[in-house]
Design a protein around this nucleic acid. Structure first.
Lengths: 224, 224
DNA sequence: CTCAAAAATTGACGGTGCGTCACGAAATGA
DNA sequence: TCATTTCGTGACGCACCGTCAATTTTTGAG
């Protein structure tokens, strides 16, 4: 917890391009963690979660087996970290969409667009997912992403409170939004020429119309 | 591969209530498999997939460890069998809904109703699922169930062909239907007083309105 | 620059669970 | 009754897991 300000070491030496002025400790720690995450991503993508071993992962980093456990408690934990790591990149975008959007519709369109594009962009995560499909599936919509989508629920709840929208089951609606994202993104990814914007538009149209339908039909049983 | 017709054994003996006239071989094989499946369901539900061991499972049956492998190839296989076993109970209902329904709307309503009720009914499957939520999640919508929902895609495709509905991306639409089922059923199950019919109605209204919305908005880019 | 304390790395080790296999028991049907 | 076939058994070898004491590296103060 030393909050002491670092003094430039022997200066120069040029050395690594690491612009950050950090102790060597901190630097190798960060790079090791990154290396382990990268290796894990590869291995999980290649052989699947079940077949992957901690040793397989650590071997690729050149580190010793015991070192793995300085960074992660178990195979499961590194896997979850991997998922969250991916999610962390999309989460702010969804949050930004939330803050920037005055309309619910605007928010939905932006959020889906961001999400679908992210899914397509992240090549490693893509392969990771492809490899892990079965009875035990990877949660592409991780808790982190979920939290992002939960903004949907709160948005709906606000609109309900302000009377813009009749009382309805906001939780189920948010679940629908998440389910759409999960399943549609998965199918989209499997295609030859995936088009994120198109899929996002489809999803958004679907969701917004669905909302309207639910309201019109009067699924207004609120349980609050 | 003996296709020989079974001759009544020593008849009578009354014996087990097993009405079926089967050789003892077949009978114990069936009951063993059932016992293993039951034990596996319990164990997975109690400690989760990761922590469950094949020995934990087989121990509850009183059988020897090696015997497990006469019935299943691995832990993963028995898990999948468990999932399919559950799905097998709902699949015919969805299929029946498909055959009995002349309207797409009718089909959707029946299918969702059947699915949500199934999810709530199957206590063991319920607990199994509750226990297995995380980055690695259980596929409540198993491949078997998926096949049932794929009827949705074919139904839509038919309607497209017959001109009832403008050309659209039936695959993405079906994905949406599946995603709804997966995520909404999960949330529903976590509630204190789950109401399957209500949730099913919500989902059906949502899906049908969504379909309309997608059509109106002209997400008509077909890729066939 | 030196050196002792702190922190991180290492790899060998004990333990656990997996899947196989040779053997014995049970069922089949001639 | 008996040979054949099928199934159950549990010990065995193997691979992986997570730990830990010893070792190396880094740190910061003198």
């Amino acid at each position: 917890m030393s909050e002491t300000i670092e003094k430039e070491p022997s200066a120069a030496e040029a050395g690594a391009a690491a612009a950050k002025t950090l102790g060597k400790r901190e630097r190798t720690k960060a790079s090791n963690k990154e290396a382990i995450l990268d290796a894990a991503r590869e291995v999980f993508a290649e052989v699947g979660y079940g077949a992957a071993s901690v040793r397989d992962i650590i071997r690729r980093t050149g580190l010793a087996s015991g070192t793995f456990y300085n960074y992660f408690k178990s195979k499961e934990e590194v896997f979850e970290a991997l998922m969250d790591d991916g999610a962390l990149r999309i989460r702010p975008v969804i949050r930004a969409a939330r803050l920037a959007s005055r309309t619910f519709e605007e928010f939905i369109r932006n959020a889906y667009k961001a999400y679908f594009n992210y899914v397509l962009t992240d090549e490693a995560q893509f392969r990771l997912m492809r490899r892990n499909t079965g009875a035990l599936r990877v949660r592409m919509v991780t808790p982190e992403v979920l939290a992002g989508f939960d903004e949907i629920q709160s948005f709906v709840e606000e609109d309900v409170k302000s009377g813009k929208v009749p009382p309805m089951d906001a939780e189920l609606f948010a679940a629908a939004a998440v389910g759409l994202a999960q399943e549609m993104s998965e199918r989209m990814m499997m295609r030859d020429n995936p088009n994120a914007d198109e899929a996002a538009e489809f999803a958004a149209n679907f969701l917004l119309a669905g909302l309207k339908g639910v309201i019109d039909r009067g699924n207004a049983q609120n349980n609050a």
